[in-house]
Write a protein that binds this DNA or RNA. Structure first.
Lengths: 266, 266
DNA sequence: ATTTAATGTGTCAGGTTGACACAATAAGAA
DNA sequence: TTCTTATTGTGTCAACCTGACACATTAAAT
């Protein structure tokens, strides 16, 4: 919820009044591009610190519903693969705690026409238990939107992460570990790749996630044997050799196989 | 925290004032006896409804610490295997919601010397997000202790569960499913069996958890090959045949193997 | 010595894995 | 048309695991 007008500020304030105090949601939104895993991060206004996209739970909202809403607010995307993975409850989880940070927050709040800035400040300074969700999205479909506390919203490579606030890098780690152990039961390919892809794309995605290389022949054989791929017309690459086939998933069959696990024991 | 005296009541009231509102913990405490999985349940005072042992998080307490404390309050056991598995945030999670239930609660509260019974009532009637933990314990080591809201604390077989409050049967289901999928990475044998056990005990435990029978020869071969068992003197059974060996775990080796998973793919 | 259950081991068919090899294919260049 | 090159489909093989079954050995109590 970016605040660009007085209306937005009042809307945000009303939102805080309608929300459960002391509990938040943080989303680890993962995408895949250029043979790399990326995560969507927000940059804190006036600081060189980044955070996971997060938000609060409305009093009339289920936890999952809130996570879906927050994801949509940051990415513009609905109906995305989203799953809860862990709840973090360290006693010291306050996003704003040092005197200088409190001053910075209060200062920032003054720049906006809040009706009760002190109340907003107190709310944001509280200890929060946060529930982590992770999402798998097609990178190119996302339109990143910063929120009230943030000045930028960007994809960052997992290989070169900036400094994160609080325990957010721990949350991120835990999400990645969770994805890795659950690999065979997550719609990795379907969620992270664009609609059409080559067999190499698919293999490379698995190699990045598993952090090891796989034998091409065996990978191909096994993927085709699953019977979840549709082959399409080749796309000409303009290069002097045979162009790779393009595939897409047969979604019903994909979901059917997913129940029993896709990916073997590699 | 059973309330047997005025002191206990005031202690409980002070506890509620020192605790995060709107967030609770529920524990699925699992034990194994007579070739059956059992779960520790509490019976609501004045009702034929049961609940999972639960509690609240102190403002100065980590989530995990609170779970450990609650587990200890109900079982008398410390240093037990305990792990978070999921957080439940349905919008309608109120343990006391219908008019008759509210009346029953207020009535019960009046029987105790609370300083601010209305406040206590309001606290308990709120919507709660709850984080589920599961524990694996040696059944015979536990001394079940009912809490303030409950009249009994008992082991119940998973095969014959009584009616549970709220979404507690859903929470229980989710815990069991989690245990089953994580089987190879959990200290099943070490936590659930008593110190010494026979190979049959161990096999039976796995059969119950996996819900299918296993081949004795293969099971034995594989377990012994792991090199995590110590064999002891046989215990004479008084029956007219060879008595089974007793085993215990070589704990350091057990934990070492556990990292890579104990249990193969069965 | 006999009975009985517990225990250790062998085997076999079927399946998977990882590693490597090789021939067929097709797009563009010469 | 022929050549170059990367893609693609398949084959093989040794190593290993699985499930199912078999069988001989061991030892406690009678």
């Amino acid at each position: 919820m970016a605040l660009r007008s007085e209306d937005h500020v009042h809307q945000f304030e009303a939102h805080l009044n309608d929300v459960i105090p002391g509990h938040s949601i943080d989303c680890v939104i993962l995408g895949y591009h250029d043979n790399e895993l990326k995560v969507l991060l927000l940059r804190r206004k006036g600081q060189d610190l980044w955070s996971l996209p997060g938000g609060f739970i409305r009093k009339s909202e289920d936890l999952d519903t809130a996570a879906t809403r927050i994801l949509e607010e940051r990415t513009g995307l609905g109906s995305i693969f989203l799953q809860q993975f862990y709840t973090f409850g360290g006693q010291d989880r306050r996003s704003v705690s040092s005197k200088s940070e409190i001053a910075m927050l209060n200062n920032m709040l003054k720049q906006y026409p809040f009706k009760e800035p002190d109340k907003v400040s107190a709310f944001l300074r509280d200890r929060f238990i946060t529930t982590g969700y992770f999402a798998l999205v097609q990178l190119n479909k996302v339109s990143p939107q910063p929120d009230f506390m943030s000045s930028q919203c960007e994809w960052k490579s997992l290989k070169a992460l900036p400094e994160l606030i609080l325990d957010h890098s721990h949350i991120l780690q835990k999400a990645i570990a969770h994805v890795q152990t659950q690999l065979n039961y997550l719609p990795i390919g379907l969620s992270l790749l664009s609609k059409k892809f080559t067999m190499q794309d698919l293999q490379n995605l698995y190699e990045v996630l598993l952090n090891r290389s796989l034998d091409r022949g065996n990978f191909q054989r096994k993927m085709l044997a699953l019977n979840i791929l549709k082959r399409h017309e080749k796309q000409l690459t303009g290069k002097a050799h045979k162009a790779p086939y393009l595939y897409s998933f047969d979604v019903p069959r994909y979901n059917e196989k997913l129940k029993k696990g896709i990916g073997f024991s590699f």
